[in-house]
């Protein structure tokens, strides 16, 4: 399991908090509505934990977007199916949503949230990463690779009360990336 000490966890949580705040702001500006968010939860996970968490999010759409660079990983966005229509309306999609439009909406939201949040934390930590195109994700059909034994998952929930919108951003960092991430964090914590 990955080990990070209390100070590092606090620092990472604060940095993520700021990043997610920027992501929420991005979405809020686009839809002109206040977006609430939870405090980032940071935890090391085994493949089983990860699978269990994904499986527990029934009735959600999923999309994923990978990032490469100094640190590598994937942003996984889950979005409750019930909130789609209301969000689609404020984002100027035609209703009712057909399958293609639903996918487009989910990918759009994923791109907005993950781009803003990745931009947020890489700029704070002066890391350089590139975000790739988002893709729809059907977790039940895909068997994730067991090439890793432990990953760091940062989870934040976004919600918009008046429209039943409920989405979750999971940032998964690959094993080697955590060390890379800790270098600038340690530097920030020094002196």
């Amino acid at each position: 399991m990955i080990e990070i000490n209390e100070d590092e966890r606090d620092a990472l949580q604060e940095i993520m908090n700021i990043s997610m705040g920027q992501a929420a702001d991005a979405l809020a500006r686009l839809i002109q509505t206040k977006v609430s968010l939870s405090i980032p939860a940071i935890q090391a996970m085994s493949p089983e934990d990860f699978q269990g968490m994904i499986n527990s999010l029934s009735d959600n759409w999923f999309a994923r977007q990978s990032f490469t660079g100094t640190i590598r990983g994937e942003v996984i966005m889950s979005m409750h199916k019930d909130g789609c229509n209301a969000l689609a309306e404020v984002m100027d999609f035609d209703l009712p949503l057909d399958d293609a439009a639903t996918e487009e909406l989910v990918l759009e939201v994923t791109n907005i949230l993950s781009a803003a949040c990745l931009q947020g934390f890489t700029s704070q930590l002066e890391l350089s990463t590139q975000l790739n195109m988002p893709a729809f994700y059907y977790p039940l059909q895909s068997v994730h690779s067991n090439e890793w034994s432990s990953i760091l998952i940062i989870e934040v929930e976004f919600f918009i009360e008046q429209m039943q919108f409920d989405a979750r951003i999971l940032i998964g960092l690959s094993e080697g990336s955590i060390e890379q991430l800790l270098i600038p964090i340690k530097a920030l914590l020094e002196d």
């Binding site: 984002m91 990918l107 803003a116 195109m133």
Partner: peptide, 21 residues
């Protein structure tokens, strides 16, 4: 318009795929 507005506001890239459009 939707796509370009989002790029201008969010300053981030946006994508569109053949599968959906």
């Amino acid at each position: 318009k939707r796509k370009i507005d989002s790029v201008l506001i969010l300053k981030n890239p946006s994508f569109s795929y053949w599968q959906q459009r």
